[in-house]
Design a protein around this nucleic acid. Structure first.
Lengths: 150, 150
DNA sequence: AGGATTTACTTCAGTGGCTGAACTGTTTTC
DNA sequence: GAAAACAGTTCAGCCACTGAAGTAAATCCT
C-alpha cells in the first residue's frame, strides 16, 4: 500500500490513511494467524470474542455485520466443537442466547492473550509515545465509529 | 471490539490494539464501500490500485498474497470490463504484464480519490495532531511491516 | 548442444464465508 | 383474536480463494 501515488491536495492526510491501511492489513493478518493458531476460523474467533457475556444470536449478527442465517452456521460449528451452547432467552421464547462453555471460555482467554501478546506496532513505541497515540486514537474514535455503521 | 475484557498486564497497550482493530475494521468497510461504489469488487480494486505501473501477474499475486490462479481470474474480469490488458513481458515470454487501459487509469484515479477523500478518522484531527499521529505511525512502521510478511 | 528441472500463467474442480428467500414458531399490535 | 412483525433455521446459490494438473518458455547441468 506504500506505492500509491495520486494527485491529491493533502499529502499528509493521504500518508496517514496509507499507514492506517497498512496497519489494518497487518492487524487483519495477525488476527487470522492467531485464530488459525488456536484452531478457529476468523468468524468463529470474532464470535467467541464477542461472547464475553451471553448474547442473543441477532445481536451477534449485528455485531458481526452479517445475516442472522450466517450466525446460525457459526453457532452450529462452535456448538459442535463444544465451545458454546444455545440457551432459550428467558425474556423472549423466539430468541436464543449463545453462551460459552468452560472450554469456550478457556479458548477465548487463550485467543485474546495471544492476540494482544504478539500484536504488532505497539512494541516499538515507548511509554510517552504510546499514551500520545492512545489519546489521538481516542480523539478520532467518534468519526471512525460513525463511519463504521452501515 | 470495544467490549473485550481480559486479565492482561498492559491495559494501555490493550486499548491501543483495540482501537487499531476498530480502525482496521472501519477502514476495511470504507474500502469495500468505496470499491462497490465505483462498481468493483474488493480484489479488483486492490489489483487496480497496485497497477500504477505495469506489473507481472506473479508480482500482483505476491502483493495480494494469493495464488497466481486467482490473479488470472481477477485479470480476466478486469480485462473483460476493459480496465486493463495483458501484454507479454518483453524480458520473459512466459510472463505477462498487466497494464491499465485509459479507462482503467481513470477508474483508478476515481477510486483513490474517493478512498482518501472520505476516509474516516483523519477528518477530526487538527494539523498538529495529524503530524503527531503521522510520526508515531512512521515509528511503528517497521514492526508492522515485519509482522505483515508470512 | 540438449535433456531435465524450474518458472509463469491457465484451467478446472472443490472449499468455505456469506447472502437472500422461504419456513416455523413466538410476540406485538390494533 | 386476526394481522403484522420478529428470532432463528434451512437451503440454494454466489463469490473469493486454494490446489492440482497442464502448457509453454526459460534455466541448469554436464
Amino acid at each position: 500500500m506504500a506505492d500509491i501515488r495520486i494527485d491529491w491536495p493533502d499529502p499528509e492526510g493521504q500518508e496517514i490513511v496509507e499507514f492506517l491501511f497498512a496497519v489494518a492489513m497487518a492487524l487483519r493478518a495477525h488476527f487470522e494467524e492467531t485464530a488459525t493458531d488456536v484452531g478457529l476460523t476468523v468468524p468463529q474467533a470474532h464470535t467467541l470474542i464477542h461472547l464475553q457475556e451471553p448474547q442473543r444470536m441477532g445481536e451477534v449478527a449485528a455485531h458481526l455485520r452479517c445475516e442472522p442465517s450466517h450466525v446460525t452456521a457459526i453457532a452450529d460449528s462452535l456448538e459442535r466443537c463444544g465451545f458454546l451452547r444455545r440457551e432459550p432467552d428467558p425474556e423472549d421464547r423466539r430468541a436464543k442466547r449463545l453462551l460459552l462453555t468452560h472450554r469456550g471460555q478457556q479458548l477465548r482467554d487463550r485467543l485474546l492473550a495471544r492476540l494482544f501478546e504478539r500484536a504488532p506496532i505497539i512494541s516499538v513505541l515507548d511509554a510517552g509515545q504510546r499514551s500520545e497515540l492512545l489519546s489521538l486514537l481516542r480523539t478520532a474514535q467518534s468519526v471512525a465509529g460513525a463511519d463504521t455503521r452501515r
